[in-house]
């Protein structure tokens, strides 16, 4: 829902900015490696990868914004940041629950949780379009669905840019949910590991006692970082995108670098809580 027209967001990359970003990233990793090369460094690495996955994943989620609610453009009719956050946090719920089964299972659980949320939501969007509004799906950006080969030109109603969720957008939504859930869960689990390692000595308490505190801290940090990364990615696509076939999708390297840098800095601060 943007009442203000999109202004920013040009194409291309600035090499100087990218270099500065990468220096910041290395600096962040270096500081943590210097202070604690073991758990904390691995934790920060996980946080960076998690942020990068979120930034990449947001680009897959088909979001049409306000025009989609009128059947004027394809995609899901809501904001990209929050739809991605909805899926990612649903994944985080699953991943946090499965934490006791080890990293691999928990990560897979988080990814599938996010994917399942998007799979159901996208299906219901198409059901509403087809059975309640009588509108078939049609993309506005490409003539043919890259997966199914459906043509779209004739299925676009007059005066619109397309509507509904073509299959490629559906698949994109599921992939976006999977990556978002995976990234969010990774950030959470890595921070949890760091806190569970350092808090008992810091507070002079047994690991069982600090469990609740570690979960609370890692949880709120994971949510905060998720939102920061999702907003940066949303800025990159300036609001709306149809999915992986959209020309805007090609902008993703900028967001991936940006999210990696932002997560590294946020991650350093979050890890400093137990290091200083």
């Amino acid at each position: 829902m943007s009442a203000i027209k999109a202004g920013g967001g040009s194409e291309g990359m600035k090499p100087v900015a990218v270099v500065v970003g990468i220096i910041l990233l290395i600096l962040a990793l270096g500081v943590v490696y210097y202070l604690s090369p073991g758990v904390a460094f691995m934790g920060l690495l996980g946080v960076v990868i998690g942020g990068l996955l979120i930034g990449f994943g947001v680009h897959f989620v088909p979001v049409g914004g306000a025009p989609a609610a009128m059947g004027q453009s394809p995609g899901i009719a809501t904001g990209v940041t929050m739809l991605a956050a909805g899926a990612g946090l649903a994944g985080l719920f699953g991943g946090a629950w499965a934490a006791e089964y080890g990293l691999a299972v928990a990560l897979a659980g988080g990814a599938i949780g996010g994917g399942l949320m998007m799979a159901i939501t996208c299906l219901m969007v198409n059901i509403i379009y087809v059975y309640a509004m009588g509108i078939p799906a049609a993309s506005g950006k490409v003539a043919k669905d890259p997966i199914t080969g459906d043509t779209f030109e004739a299925y676009k109603s007059q005066g619109t840019e397309g509507h509904g969720l073509p299959f490629i957008s559906y698949v994109g939504g599921v992939i976006g949910g999977i990556l978002g859930g995976l990234g969010g869960t990774l950030i959470y689990l890595e921070l949890l590991e760091v806190y569970e390692t350092f808090l008992p000595t810091l507070l002079n308490a047994s690991p069982d006692e600090v469990k609740a505190l570690a979960v609370g801290l890692a949880g709120i940090f994971a949510i905060g970082m998720f939102l920061v990364n999702a907003v940066i990615a949303a800025y990159n696509i300036t609001g709306t995108i149809e999915g992986p076939h959209d020309p805007k999708f090609k902008r993703f390297p900028r967001a991936v670098i940006g999210c990696a840098v932002a997560s590294a800095v946020c991650g350093v601060l979050a890890i400093f809580v137990v290091l200083v």
Partner: peptide, 9 residues
Amino acid sequence: AAGSATGNP
């Protein structure tokens, strides 16, 4: 997210 995606159109 679920409610707005499904209900808005």
